[in-house]
Amino acid sequence: MSEPSASAVDPLRPWPDTVQWRPVSPRLVTVELLGLAVWQVILLTGLGAGWWLGGQRVWPVLMGAVLFLGVWRATVAVRAVRAWGYAERDNDLMVRHGLVIRRLSIVPYARMQYVDVTAGPLERAFKLATVQLHTAAAASDARVPGLPPEEAARLRDRLTALGEDRAEGL
């Protein structure tokens, strides 16, 4: 049997090594952890009220479970942010993310309809934005979270220009 060629794609290695991956900002970790902390406080407050009103032993057990799941989710969130990346190529944009289920989206510039840049209140507080790409097929939309606003604006402008150039050739 012959060995696969060096250019063969391995479906179990979805992050091609032939491109220059750009990471998202590490400040996205803080944004994710703060969002998680808010939900933890809300859940623990509700469970604490149930314990105070009902006085049963199940409430502290549930509170412990919420705390345990919160610590687990915080660990996963840190690793998940590090898994995000994007690469600009000649004809398309590649976006990767995921830990257990890895996802690689390849969006051809000619297929892009429009590009959004959004930033919620927490993202704005940490000077971050999200670039959202829209195509005709809803399943092929891709997003790149955790970008500094300058990089998000640069990427938006570049993708828009490249999308217009490629679409004219169709």
Rank of each mutant, 00 (worst) to 15 (best):
E3D: 14
S5D: 15
S5H: 15
S5F: 15
S7Q: 14
P11W: 13
L12S: 11
L12K: 07
R13D: 08
P14S: 03
P14R: 12
P16C: 02
V19Y: 09
V19M: 07
Q20G: 07
W21C: 12
R22W: 02
R22Y: 03
P23L: 00
V24L: 02
S25C: 04
S25A: 10
P26H: 06
L28Y: 14
V29F: 04
V29E: 09
V29W: 05
T30Y: 06
T30P: 03
V31G: 02
L33K: 14
L33P: 13
L34R: 14
L36G: 14
L36M: 11
A37W: 10
W39L: 09
V41I: 10
V41S: 01
I42P: 00
L43E: 00
L43W: 04
T45C: 02
G46I: 01
G50H: 11
W51Y: 13
W51Q: 13
W52P: 00
W52G: 02
L53G: 04
L53I: 06
L53T: 03
L53Q: 12
G55M: 08
Q56T: 12
V58I: 15
V58G: 02
W59P: 01
P60A: 05
P60D: 05
P60V: 06
G64R: 05
G64F: 07
A65P: 00
L67D: 03
L69K: 00
G70P: 00
G70S: 08
A74S: 14
T75R: 05
A77Y: 08
R79H: 12
G85D: 01
Y86I: 01
A87Y: 12
E88A: 13
E88N: 08
L93T: 05
M94L: 13
H97P: 08
G98L: 10
L99S: 12
L99W: 12
V100Y: 11
V100D: 02
R102I: 12
R103C: 03
L104Y: 07
L104P: 06
V107N: 11
P108R: 07
Y109D: 03
A110S: 12
Y114Q: 15
V115R: 13
V117Q: 10
V117K: 03
P121F: 05
L122C: 04
L122W: 04
E123M: 06
R124N: 02
F126C: 03
F126G: 01
K127C: 08
L128N: 07
L128G: 04
L128M: 12
Q132N: 14
H134G: 06
A138V: 13
A138M: 10
A139I: 11
S140C: 01
S140T: 12
D141Q: 07
A142H: 11
A142D: 09
L147P: 04
P148A: 15
E151N: 04
A152C: 07
L155P: 01
R156Y: 05
R156F: 04
T160K: 13
T160P: 06
T160V: 14
T160R: 15
A161G: 07
L162G: 11
G163Q: 08
R166F: 11
A167L: 10
A167R: 15
E168L: 13
E168P: 00
G169W: 04
